[in-house]
Design a protein around this nucleic acid. Structure first.
Lengths: 323, 323
DNA sequence: TTGTAAGCGTTATCAC
DNA sequence: GTGATAACGCTTACAA
């Protein structure tokens, strides 16, 4: 920076200003400095800047998985908002494990993040509060006082899907889930409350396993739930990966969908609209959630107080051929 | 750090050593310092560390897309190797655009990365060289002297798939591609050379469009290529997304696969093994490529000279029902 | 094995 | 509008 200043005939601090607060420097001088920086191949050092300004321009983003398109879309939304403002996301993948989440949080704190975007409501809530850094929770809606969140009611979405199956005439509706994270369990609760209210809830028609979701697991779980409750006339899978696997397995087993068995998923991944039969599911606005959460965080970083602490972006039932 | 030292009854520098080079500190003292740090909630400042040590522990990773599972797998492989060594990946998504790649590179340079992992062979090759920072190219094999790369021959893979279709008896084999990045074009070259050698190449059976790949685009391109070259008996799609879309479209149009038309893709995404008919494709070892590239970069960072500058990890033909 | 002094590249503060 | 000075929190010498 001193070199650039020397070449431009000014001091280092003026170079700093020319970049960070251009309006505090004469336009003519600003150009001269930019030219000097260019010709010297000057690259600002963000570590030094962070140290001196006590502001890292880093935002920690914690998601459970990156192979799940849902969270990739979430990241894209976040990125679209944060990048133009010069913030850098530090992406941590927790693998749906609270312990790993806590570990990751600790290690990312070394980057002195200016703010945090966190998927769900982590166990480390106390710790987060104590940090005194702004944080916004994504995908779920937080109840905790003082927390900020952007998402949807997973339970309500589960209930809507269950009600849809009832409305289509199905009466022996099963529920299959894997990767039992809080959002999945909330969907299960939505399903249960609706079936109970209809007097149709039967725990035998529920299958919950802890393994990570995948298409191949969905295929396996279809076999297991049909062995356990052969009379099911519809199955609500907690996500599209499982539902797709089940659908493909039905093809192979000669089970007609929805004739013999209706199938529904959750999230509306790209394949779901195109496979045969197309998959009934719940579309979640994860891209918008990412954008809104990042926007809310920026507001907090700017010292503002968002009017809505809990922003509900809803969901859409995609009633398709599989039900 | 001074506070931690004070509590433990030592100076700040000893605290630094207790964390960075534990073997240079008495075990007993080390424990006392860790205890003090714990009770004070001390969090090391990486910006300060980077500044003082002239080593940021940041690795810039440039990929074209994050919605493409191929690159997510690549990232996972990289992460598995880099994380245990304390490196932080800064992930840049170029959107397959060379101009954006150059811009991203510039902006990530401010983080003073210790090394770079780059998908493909960027136009900014000169610039990269000039940086004097170790860089490893991924997915393709670099020809450039002085470069390091881990990947596979996309052209050879394209040729193998084309030969497979010939071997299965198809004679009017078309090629459909989108997102015309260098890897896609290399696959096209492999296809062309094989068909030409067999005297079966016909440019009318080729359809190349610049739009981003997606399932829905694949469906559309199936219609277009069949309108353009209705006599095709097999179609080689440049990736699985397009091939899946085409497969789903065939279902809807009542085109029997492979009876009326064989379909093949590239990359072997999870759905491809499970859809009906299952999709013939080329499995690429992107997870291993990520791991090996990161390992090679670590070797360079440690001052070593990898024996292989060009590491070919190959590919596997997955001959399935769709052909 | 531990401590001292100096400096990493930038910005906040206060002056001019 | 521009400049001098002193930090920011840590680590590399070098010394003890």
């Amino acid at each position: 920076m001193a070199d650039v200043g020397a070449l431009a005939g000014v001091s280092a601090i003026t170079v700093s200003r020319a970049f960070k607060t251009p309006d505090k420097v004469t336009p003519e001088l600003r150009e001269r400095i930019r030219g000097a920086a260019q010709s010297l191949g000057y690259i600002p050092n963000r570590a030094a800047s962070a140290l001196a300004a006590a502001c890292s321009m880093n935002i920690v983003v914690l998601i459970p998985s990156m192979t799940n398109l849902v969270f990739v879309d979430l990241l894209a939304g976040i990125h679209e908002v944060l990048r133009p403002r010069g913030y850098q996301e530090l992406i941590g993948v927790t693998g749906y494990a609270p312990a790993e989440e806590a570990r990751l949080l600790d290690s990312y704190l070394e980057f002195q993040p200016d703010g945090l975007l966190i998927t769900g409501l982590p166990g480390s809530w106390q710790r987060l509060q104590a940090l005194g850094r702004p944080a916004v929770h994504m995908m779920e809606l937080a109840d905790h006082p003082g927390s900020y969140s952007v998402g949807l009611s997973q339970e309500a979405a589960g209930a809507v899907l269950a009600r849809h199956l009832l409305a289509r005439g199905y009466r022996r509706i099963g529920f299959v889930a894997a990767q039992l994270d809080p959002r999945t369990l909330a969907r299960a609760e939505g399903y249960r409350s609706v079936l109970r209210a209809a007097g149709l809830y039967d725990p035998m028609r529920e299958l919950l396993v802890p393994e990570p979701s995948s298409i191949s697991l969905g295929a396996g779980l279809l076999d297991r739930i049909l062995a356990q409750a052969p009379d099911c006339d519809a199955l609500f899978f907690c996500n599209d990966d499982l539902a797709q696997g089940a659908l493909f397995r039905c093809h192979r087993r000669g089970i007609a969908v929805p004739g013999d068995l209706a199938i529904a998923g959750f999230n509306d991944l790209p394949v779901s609209a195109w496979c045969t039969p197309s998959l009934t599911t719940i579309a979640t606005p994860r891209y918008e959630i990412g954008r809104e959460a990042a926007t809310m965080l920026l507001e907090l970083l700017d010292g503002g107080k968002p009017v809505e602490r809990r922003r509900d972006l809803g969901f859409t039932l995609m009633a398709r051929e599989s039900s």
